[in-house]
């Protein structure tokens, strides 16, 4: 056998991809919420204490009772907290720097997690108003909301 060359003993390296192609069933309540997004409307659900929960949940977080009272909410709202992403990852909703934010839509009592295309971190502030930017083609998933953008006051 030939003498091993340096090249023979260098550990190899290769890209290894592990992928699980799950389909997740979403249930009747989130299913209706996503169906609403396809029709470009955002629906929450009224809890037993009167609060409107967005995104909607199947059972009351306090009493555990089944919830059925859907409520359409506004397509703009207030940022309650946010985090700036200066280097977006491949699967992020935007390929330019953006903010992950909790957004309390008008008429809702809880906040929805989504992305805000603000352009620059200096444009972000807790309490700022943002409005939805719909994706051109909707298909019944959370990505139907492409992102939120700072509301332009006129």
């Amino acid at each position: 056998m030939a003498m091993p060359t340096e090249n023979d003993t260098t550990p190899l390296s290769a890209l290894h991809v592990l992928e699980y192609p799950y389909t997740r069933s979403v249930g009747p309540v989130v299913g209706r919420f996503l169906g609403g997004l396809r029709d470009r409307k955002i629906e929450g659900i009224r809890a037993k204490d009167g609060r409107v929960l967005v995104p909607p949940v199947e059972y009351d977080p306090v009493t555990s009772e089944e919830l059925t009272d859907f409520v359409e909410v506004g397509q703009a709202g207030v940022v309650t907290t946010w985090a700036w992403v200066s280097e977006p990852r491949p699967k992020h909703p935007l390929d330019t720097p953006f903010a992950w934010a909790l957004i309390k839509l008008d008429g809702a009592d809880t906040a929805l997690l989504h992305a805000i295309d603000a352009g620059d971190q200096s444009k972000m502030a807790t309490g700022m108003r943002v409005s939805v930017r719909w994706r051109e083609q909707t298909s019944g998933e959370i990505g139907d909301i492409a992102c939120f953008e700072p509301e332009t006051t006129s």
């Binding site: 890209l15 991809v17 592990l18 799950y22 979403v26 009747p28």
Partner: peptide
């Protein structure tokens, strides 16, 4: 139209594997 039954939720992990 109507409620959505399920969504694609793939999990993908990319490793630089050194044996």
């Amino acid at each position: 139209g109507g409620p959505v039954g399920g969504i694609g939720a793939p999990i993908r992990l990319e490793y630089d594997y050194t044996p």
